[in-house]
Amino acid sequence: MQRKSGLLKELVVNRLLFLMLLPTVLFFLINSYTPMVGIYYAFTRFDFNTSLFNSQFVGLQNFEFLWKSGVLARLTFNTIGYNLAFILLGNVLAIALAVLISELRLKWFKKLTQSIMFLPYFVSFVILSVIVYNMFNYESGFLNTFLAKLGAEPLDIYNMPWIWIFLIIIFYLWKNIGYSMVIYLASITGISEEYYEAAKIDGANIFQRIWYITIPMLKTTFVMLLLFALGSIMKGQFDLFYQLVGNNGMLYNTTDILDTYVYRSLKVTFDIGMSTAAGLYQSLFGFILIMTVNAIIKKINDEYALF
């Protein structure tokens, strides 16, 4: 009784705040929670003539195609591996570049570098795939023409699976680094000048100032971006892999991720049950991962945790 009136009182007292919260709550309710009903599709056989809940329940049958060819482990490993590389290399490089750029004094040069680094972000992966093909194709690619001029043997890049691990990471960084750098640059601008001035007076050189002031101040941003990124670690950069590798089976051992695998399998057998099953596997794995990492971070330092 007591508590109920407490909650009611709370609603009445802060009604304006709750009203302001309402659109967000509704947004998530409609766009995120209601559609979750569709998870049930993963466990039914899709039928054109009945509704979702009248469809035949088939248990885990829709998940079967994921392990049928025995590649689930490799796919999961590839997906996580690439994403870890993207997240770690991406963030470290972005921080380094952001620090460098923030130390630049020439204003126009700073703006120019920033823009140039940001530009690849707008290049679509479709265009990137054409560029890559023209760089690396065996007969007339830029690389082999260049090697031929030097008198060296041509390289068949599209037949060298190992090299694609590096190529994919490099192209990812090339495209995305400018964007994440700007985020770090923004939080660097937010650091109060007073710290630096105090450090200067105490005789700290520029490296000490970066190491002892800038980097620690970026930690919160870093942890937050890390946590957000970890949540989607099971979701690869579909466009990147699909456009660069496409139908080239020779490269699948090192470049196939869950997204591309699922896309290819279901392009022929489009089945709503099976695609939902694949999506559910990814989401569930991502959910477990983000909960674990968040719990660990919470244990180490409560303030940095997301929730």
Binding site: Q61, F65, S69, G249, S265, D271
Partner: peptide, 18 residues
């Protein structure tokens, strides 16, 4: 044989296409 079909499609692309 829906699951097998999807898995086979995959194997074809990876091993038969080359």
């Amino acid at each position: 044989y829906q699951a097998e079909r999807a898995a086979l499609e995959q194997v074809e692309k990876q091993y038969l296409f080359p």
